[in-house]
Design a protein around this nucleic acid. Structure first.
Length: 800
DNA sequence: GAGTTTGAAACT
DNA sequence: CAGTTTCAAACTC
C-alpha cells in the first residue's frame, strides 16, 4: 500500500470501501459523485433534448460569436492542473501559484470584458491575450460571454467552499492516507484549494483581483443604460456559458472519469465516463471538440477525480444558465440561479461575490417553482422590448415575434421577475444574442404561449425559427408581425417601433439603413442612452395596464379592469382619439387628464371622465407631482426592500425603461384591442367597479390603494418607475412604503414619469376591460404559469 | 401599392 | 418652453 500505483490505489480505494482512500474520497466529495453523474446525465439529456443547432442559432449574435471564438475549453483548467501538479511534484502543498486560480478568474473577467467592451484590463497576469490559455479557458469554463461575475463568482465561490471542506478532509486524509495516489490527489486538491481559498477568501490577490475586475465590469455593465445590454449579454452568455460549461465540464468530467477509470485502472463502473464524454463532445459539437479534447486530456491527467467533481459541480452552478432545457427542476433551479446571479451580480457585486452561488441557488431552488413559474415573463422580457413592444399599441411589437432578429435590447424586465422571485433568465430570452431570439410570443404568446414558453425553456434559446414563425403565425396577425419600415431614422429613433420597443429589427422589418441590429449594438445602446437621457420615459410603455400588476401581485388580473393609462397622454386633434393615431386609443386605454387632445371621443375613456376623479385622488396626484423624486425614491426603496428578497430588483432601477417594459407586458394588446366597447368603461364588470368610470376607479384606489391603485392606473406608471416588479408588489407595498407618502405607488410612478403631467394621471379613465385585456391578462398569467411564458411574456401584447 | 393624413418625435 | 420640422405609422383610395 505504501507505494502502490496510483491506479491501483485509486481502484482499490474506489472499490474497497474499507480502504482509507475510499473513505477519503467519500469524505471529499460525498455528494459530488452523485451530482456529477446526475448532473451529467441530466444535463446531457437536457442538452440532447435541446437542439444544439438551435443553440448555435441562438448565438448567432456577435456576442455569441465572440464568446465562442475564444473558448478553448480547458486550457485554463489544464494549466492550472498542470501547475498544481507541478506543485505537487515539488512536494509542496502550497499553491505555488495561487495566482493560477486567480488568473483564471481574472482572465475570465478580462476576457468577458474584452468580448463585450473590447477593453480589457488585465487584472492578473494572464492575459488578455486572446491566444492565452486564459482566454480559452475562460470562455469555456465560465462562460463565453457570460457575465463574468456569474461565471466566476459563482463557480468560484462554490468551489472554494467545497474545496475548503475537501481540503480539510484532505488534510486528514493526508495524515491518514499513505498511498501516493491519495497523496497525489491530496496535493492537487490542496493546491487547488489553497489557490481557490486564497482567491476567495483571504484576500488573496486572486480573489480580490477577480472581484475587482468583476466589480468593475459589472459596474460598467450595470450602468443604467448598459444594464439593458447586459441583460442581453448576460443571457447570451449564460446560454453559451451554460452550454459550454456543461459541455466542457461534462466533457472534462467524463473524460477524466473515463481516464480515471480506464487509465487509472479505477473501477470501471465507477463513473459514467465514456458515455459522458460522448455526450459532452456532442454537445460541444465540432467547435470545440478538437480543441477541448487535447486540453482535457492533459487536464484529466492532472486533475483528480475530485476535481472533476468540482468541475462538474461548477458546471452545475454555471450551467444552469444555459438552457432551461434541463429537465430536472434542480437544474432549472440552477439555471435560475445563474440568472439570478447574473442579475444579482450585475447589480450588486458584493452580493454576488459573496453570496455563494450556492446560497442563491438554493434560495432560488427553494423557491422551487417550476421553472415555468420562475420565469414568467420576465425573462423574456427581457423585457424591455417586450414591454415596449407590448406597449406599442400596435401590438406589432408584441407580436413581434420578432422573430428572428428582434432581440430585446433590454433586460430589465428580468429584473422585475427576479425581484419577484421569478426569474427570468434573461439570458434565455435573449438568446437573442443572435438577435434572433427575441421572438416574442406575444400573441401566441398570449395564447399560450405555449410555444414560447416551452420553446424557450426547452430549447432555451433555441427557439427555433419555426417557433418564431409560429408565433408570428399565431400571432396574431400580421399586424403583430409587422415591423418597422423606417427609412431615414435608421431605426435609431423612437420613430422606429422596433427601437422604441427595445428590440432589434428583424426580418419582418422593411427598414432602410437600419442600425438597429445586434451588429451595431453599441450604437443602438448609445443612442438609446441619449434618448433616455433626454426623456427617461422614452422607452417606457406608453400605456400601462393594471392587469399586469394584478398578475404580478397575485391578484387576479381578471379582476382588475384593464384599466391602463397612457402615461404621457395624447395630443390628438383631428382623430378625436378614435383612431390609432391616438396613442391612447392604440393602447386601448382611455384618455386621461394628461392628454391634451381635442374633442376626445376615446372609446376607452374620454379625457373628460377624469374630472370625475375624486378629490383625494387629485390631491394625491398633486402631491406626487410635487415630489416626483420622492416618489421615485419611494419606489426605489420599495424596490430595494423587495430587492432584498429578490436580487433582481436591484436591477430594475438600473434600467427603468425596461422595467416599464415589463409593465408593458401586461399591456393588453391594443392592437387587438379594439375600441372596446365604447361604454365599456363605464360598464365595467364586477371588477369593474374599478374599471367603471373613473370615479369608480379612484375610489378603489383610495380604498385599496395598493391593490386597486396598482390595478387602475398605477400599473402603468409603476412600470415606468421601474419597479415594475416592484410596481406590482409595490403597488401593494407602496402603500406601505416607508415614505409613506405615496400610498399609491402607481401614482408615484406616474408622477415620477416626467412626462406625466401631474402626478397621476388620473386614473385613467375607466377603461373597462377589454376583451383583449382579459385575454392579455390571461395570457400573461398563462405565460407565467407556463413557464414557457417566461420567455414570451413580454410579448403578450399580441394576444389578440 | 401609392398617396394622404396624422400626430409623435426631433429639432430649433 | 413653444414653434417648426421631420418622420413613420395609419389610413384612404
Amino acid at each position: 500500500m505504501d507505494t502502490p500505483d496510483r491506479a491501483a490505489a485509486q481502484s482499490a480505494a474506489t472499490r474497497t470501501e474499507d480502504s482509507p482512500v475510499f473513505s477519503f474520497l467519500n469524505n471529499l466529495s460525498p455528494i459530488e459523485p452523485l451530482r456529477s453523474s446526475a448532473y451529467s446525465t441530466n444535463s446531457l439529456q437536457g442538452f440532447q433534448s435541446i437542439n444544439i443547432t438551435s443553440i448555435s442559432s441562438i448565438f448567432t449574435s456577435p456576442h455569441d460569436n465572440v464568446s465562442k471564438e475564444p473558448r478553448l475549453p480547458k486550457s485554463p483548467l489544464g494549466e492550472i492542473s498542470d501547475k498544481e501538479v507541478r506543485a505537487d511534484a515539488a512536494g509542496t502543498n502550497e499553491p505555488p501559484e495561487p495566482s493560477n486560480a486567480a488568473r483564471l478568474f481574472a482572465c475570465t473577467s478580462t476576457v468577458t470584458r474584452e468580448t463585450r467592451t473590447g477593453t480589457c484590463t488585465g487584472v492578473a497576469g494572464p492575459p488578455p491575450t486572446t491566444g492565452g490559455p486564459c482566454d480559452l479557458a475562460l470562455p469555456r469554463q465560465f462562460d463565453n460571454n457570460g457575465s463574468p461575475d456569474h461565471n466566476t463568482t459563482p463557480c468560484h465561490g462554490v468551489r472554494s467552499d467545497l474545496k475548503q471542506d475537501k481540503a480539510r478532509k484532505l488534510l486528514q486524509a493526508a495524515q491518514n492516507a499513505k498511498k501516493n495516489a491519495l497523496e497525489k490527489r491530496k496535493c492537487l486538491f490542496s493546491t487547488e484549494v489553497r489557490l481557490l481559498d486564497g482567491g476567495g477568501g483571504g484576500g488573496g490577490e486572486p480573489g480580490s483581483d477577480s472581484d475587482g475586475v468583476l466589480g468593475c465590469e459589472w459596474s460598467d455593465l450595470v450602468s443604467p443604460t448598459s444594464a439593458k445590454l447586459l441583460a442581453f449579454d448576460a443571457t447570451m452568455d449564460e446560454h453559451h456559458r451554460g452550454v459550454h460549461l456543461a459541455a466542457q465540464n461534462a466533457e472534462s468530467c467524463g473524460y477524466l472519469l473515463s481516464k480515471l477509470a480506464g487509465d487509472g485502472g479505477v473501477s470501471d463502473g465507477a463513473y459514467p465516463t465514456a458515455s459522458a464524454q460522448v455526450y459532452y463532445q456532442e454537445l460541444v459539437m465540432g467547435e470545440d471538440q478538437s480543441e477541448n479534447a487535447a486540453p482535457q486530456m492533459d487536464a484529466q491527467e492532472t486533475i483528480s477525480a475530485e476535481e472533476t467533481q468540482d468541475n462538474i459541480y461548477e458546471a452545475d452552478v454555471c450551467v444552469p444558465l444555459e438552457y432551461k432545457v434541463v429537465e430536472s427542476q434542480q437544474q432549472r433551479g440552477i439555471r435560475r440561479r445563474c440568472l439570478v446571479f447574473e442579475a444579482a451580480g450585475g447589480f450588486s457585486n458584493s452580493a454576488v461575490k459573496r453570496g455563494t452561488i450556492e446560497d442563491r441557488s438554493v434560495s432560488t431552488c427553494s423557491k422551487g417553482k417550476s421553472p415555468a413559474e420562475s420565469q414568467p415573463r420576465g425573462l423574456r422580457g427581457i423585457g424591455l422590448h417586450l414591454n415596449a413592444l407590448a406597449l406599442t399599441p400596435k401590438g406589432k411589437m408584441a407580436c413581434q415575434d420578432p422573430p428572428p432578429t428582434a432581440s430585446a435590447l433590454l433586460p430589465s424586465s428580468a429584473s422585475e421577475k427576479d425581484a419577484r422571485g421569478e426569474l427570468l433568465c434573461a439570458g434565455e430570452n435573449f438568446a437573442h444574442s443572435g438577435g434572433e431570439l427575441l421572438e416574442f410570443p406575444l400573441d401566441g404568446c398570449s395564447a399560450g404561449g405555449g410555444f414560447p414558453v416551452n420553446d424557450h425553456h426547452v430549447s432555451g434559446q433555441s427557439v427555433s425559427p419555426q417557433k418564431k414563425r409560429r408565433k408570428t403565425d399565431n400571432g396574431d396577425d400580421g399586424e403583430a408581425c409587422k415591423r418597422c419600415s423606417c427609412k431615414k431614422s435608421k431605426c435609431l429613433k423612437l420613430y422606429c417601433e422596433c427601437f422604441a420597443a427595445g428590440v432589434y429589427c428583424s426580418e419582418p422589418c422593411s427598414c432602410q439603413g437600419c442600425m438597429n441590429k445586434p451588429i451595431h449594438e453599441e450604437t443602438v445602446l448609445s443612442t438609446r442612452k441619449q434618448i433616455e437621457f433626454r426623456n427617461p420615459l422614452a422607452f417606457a410603455p406608453k400605456v400601462i395596464r393594471m392587469s399586469d400588476a394584478g398578475l404580478e401581485t397575485g391578484e387576479d388580473p381578471n379582476n382588475t379592469p384593464a384599466s391602463a393609462r397612457h402615461k404621457r397622454g395624447c395630443n390628438c386633434k383631428k382623430s378625436s382619439c378614435l383612431k390609432k393615431y391616438c396613442e391612447c386609443y392604440q393602447g386601448g386605454v382611455g384618455c386621461s387628464s394628461n392628454c391634451r387632445c381635442e374633442s376626445c371621443k376615446n372609446a376607452f375613456g374620454r379625457r373628460d371622465a377624469e374630472t370625475e376623479l375624486p378629490e383625494e385622488m387629485k390631491q394625491e396626484e398633486s402631491d406626487q407631482t410635487e415630489n416626483p423624486q420622492q416618489e421615485k425614491e419611494n419606489d426605489q426603496q420599495k424596490a430595494n426592500v423587495q430587492g432584498e428578497d429578490h436580487p433582481l430588483l436591484d436591477l430594475v432601477p438600473i434600467t427603468p425603461p425596461f422595467d416599464f417594459c415589463s409593465s408593458l407586458l401586461k399591456l393588453p394588446n391594443f392592437s387587438s384591442a379594439k375600441p372596446p366597447r365604447p361604454t365599456k368603461a363605464r360598464s365595467v364588470t364586477s371588477r369593474s367597479s374599478a374599471s367603471k368610470a373613473t370615479a369608480a376607479v379612484q375610489p378603489c384606489r383610495s380604498s385599496k390603494l395598493a391593490a386597486s391603485a396598482s390595478a387602475s392606473g398605477i400599473d402603468e406608471e409603476t412600470p415606468d418607475i421601474l419597479h415594475e416588479p416592484d410596481s406590482l408588489s409595490n403597488c401593494v407595498k407602496t402603500t406601505t412604503s416607508p415614505n409613506g407618502k405615496r400610498v399609491s405607488p402607481p401614482h408615484n410612478a406616474l408622477g415620477s414619469s416626467p412626462n406625466r403631467k401631474g402626478g397621476r394621471k388620473l386614473i385613467l379613465k375607466s377603461i373597462p376591460l377589454f376583451p383583449s385585456l382579459t385575454g392579455d391578462t390571461n395570457s400573461g398569467s398563462a405565460m407565467n404559469s407556463t413557464d414557457s411564458a417566461f420567455c414570451a411574456s413580454p410579448l403578450t401584447l399580441g394576444p389578440s
